[in-house]
Design a protein around this nucleic acid. Structure first.
Length: 246
DNA sequence: AGCACA
């Protein structure tokens, strides 16, 4: 297994420029994307977003609406929060259909998620009014017993955490990310073709720094993955390898 | 700019 040091002190500055943090929202498995091109139809846009974001993990749902208030925006509901985190990190500011996407965590939980939790309420009949609760139950100690979701022990860590391979069932196709922009198919070929069962590379035209590598079967791809995981093409960019999503 | 889902 990979030894990961979780407690090493972070360097205050990695030389990265800190731009205005657009996402001060708390972590959410749903990401809110805006500044999208408003020309394509809702269906078309949703399709594009699916193919763009599915490499980061299973997508439960994509919600986009056509109303004036909602156009140019979309909600990508991931199955895992780490997928959302990775997608946000990687794709924020990425130029999509001629415009740089802006991505934040969604402010609230998606219905698709609530339905899986069992906490879904049919209509917006129930508004949580804190006023009422405070007045009625002043001294009541609220004890989350049943459906208490495990609160992230460190809420701030995940967003600052470096890109990590995502969890996915074995697949003969590997998803490689965090590649430097100057990385070309040729050099990936040289790296991966040394492992048995290598079939080929396919770089997505949509996004640089990402590639798919295919092997004969998932045992062969697993070998290559363990050997090349974290391999640094350049000192700043260790490649992150996962099994491709179905 | 703009945080929804019936």
């Amino acid at each position: 297994m990979a030894d990961v040091k979780e407690n090493e002190p972070d360097m205050p500055n990695g030389g990265e420029k800190e731009e205005t943090q657009s996402s001060e929202n708390t972590m959410n498995q749903t990401i809110y994307v805006n500044n999208l091109n408003e020309k394509p139809s809702k269906k078309k846009l949703t399709e594009q977003l699916y193919s763009l974001f599915s490499p980061y993990g299973s997508i439960l749902e994509i919600v986009a609406a056509k109303r004036q208030k909602m156009r140019g925006q979309a909600f990508i509901v991931f199955k895992d929060i780490t997928s959302a985190s990775n997608a946000l990190r990687e794709m924020n500011g990425f130029e999509f259909l001629g415009r740089p996407m802006s991505i934040q965590y969604a402010k609230s939980k998606s219905d698709a998620v609530s339905k899986l939790d069992g906490t879904y309420i049919e209509k917006k009949r129930e508004r949580e009014n804190d006023q009422d609760k405070k007045k009625a139950k002043k001294q009541q100690t609220k004890k989350p017993s049943t459906t208490a979701k495990p609160k992230a022990a460190s809420t701030a860590n995940a967003q600052a955490a470096p890109l990590q391979p995502r969890e996915a069932p074995p697949n003969k196709i590997l998803f490689v990310e965090n590649l430097p922009e100057q990385c070309e198919e040729m050099m990936l070929n040289m790296l991966f073709s040394q492992f048995p069962g290598f079939q080929g590379i396919s770089m997505t035209t949509a996004k640089k720094g990402v590639a798919f590598v295919e092997f004969d079967d998932d045992s062969k791809s697993a070998v290559a993955m363990t050997h090349l995981q974290g391999f640094k093409v350049t000192p700043e960019k260790p490649m992150v390898i996962s099994f491709a999503a179905q």
